[in-house]
């Protein structure tokens, strides 16, 4: 029989190329004398640009932990540079029934992430085996995704706040992940402008609080923070939504606003049509 006795030329036994989450074939590492895969030379690779900056953006997201769960808030504005381009954008998004994410940064990247998470939830639904992804697992997934993309020098230009309550254990999760893959978890979280303007307020009102924080008081604190952010953040809008997640489930409110007072502003230099 005309057969080569060099066993490395016999071809590879069956392997599952999908096994590596990064798209590589892990089994190949263990293949004796396996031929090195050669990556075809992309003539245009020099011209390919990775994301250098966000285009249509949302501003800060805030979140806090209260007695029964998590509350998040984000306004309805998507800016194009300094232009208030879209005023009815929802930046809070439900993932499964017990997790909600809030997104700051590039809105098209956010839409991509929504689609990824939808696929994930549908996969989980199709298994139909009583297992589900809780907030901690979704957060882990998003962290891996964001770190992976930044490691490819092609980040998803967002900062996300993930909030949720695990329906089985009752454990609540409030955590942050951004375009660098930076992660942390805390009882109060704010992204971007809110990390400077709202965090000191949130820490005083939530973390320094002695008695347990109920839902009504939590909503007041959220409104206070959104008001201050609207006063201070030139890329914000006095129209925002609040998400509440408890062991029973999650909901995203209708858009709401807070009363503001601008009478004092007349005395401030740089306000309105003043030229001086």
């Amino acid at each position: 029989m005309n057969m080569s006795n060099n066993f490395t030329s016999w071809g590879r036994p069956f392997t599952d190329a999908k096994m590596d989450m990064y798209g590589g074939d892990v089994t190949q590492r263990y293949q004796l004398g396996a031929q090195q895969m050669t990556v075809p030379d992309d003539k245009f690779s020099e011209g390919v640009q990775k994301t250098q900056q966000p285009i249509v953006t949302g501003t800060s997201v805030i979140g806090l932990k209260f007695k029964d769960g998590i509350m998040l808030a984000a306004d309805n504005l998507a800016s194009y540079g300094s232009l208030a381009r879209f005023k009815d954008i929802q930046r809070l998004y439900g993932v499964g029934s017990n997790t909600i994410i809030g997104a700051a940064g590039d809105m098209s990247d956010f839409q991509h992430v929504q689609h990824q998470l939808d696929t994930l939830i549908t996969d989980e639904y199709c298994h139909d085996d009583g297992h589900s992804l809780g907030p901690a697992q979704i957060y882990e997934y998003m962290s891996t995704l964001m770190y992976h993309r930044r490691s490819q020098l092609n980040p998803l230009w967002n900062a996300f706040v993930v909030g949720g309550v695990d329906p089985k254990s009752g454990e609540s999760t409030l955590a942050y992940v951004d375009l660098l893959g930076t992660t942390y978890s805390a009882p109060t979280i704010g992204t971007g402008y809110a990390s400077m303007i709202a965090i000191p307020l949130l820490r005083r009102l939530v973390e320094d609080r002695q008695e347990p924080l109920n839902k009504e008081d939590a909503l007041d604190i959220i409104k206070t923070c959104m008001k201050v952010l609207f006063y201070r953040d030139a890329r914000s809008l006095n129209k925002f939504q609040v998400a509440t997640i408890t062991k029973e489930g999650s909901e995203i409110s209708q858009s709401m606003s807070v009363d503001t007072e601008w009478g004092f502003a007349e005395g401030i230099r740089g306000y309105g049509g003043q030229t001086q």
Binding site: T119, T122, C126
Partner: peptide, 17 residues
Amino acid sequence: LQTRAREECKNYRDNYM
């Protein structure tokens, strides 16, 4: 076949939303 069907459904959603 279920696995294949799942892939088909996923691809369709990816392409046509």
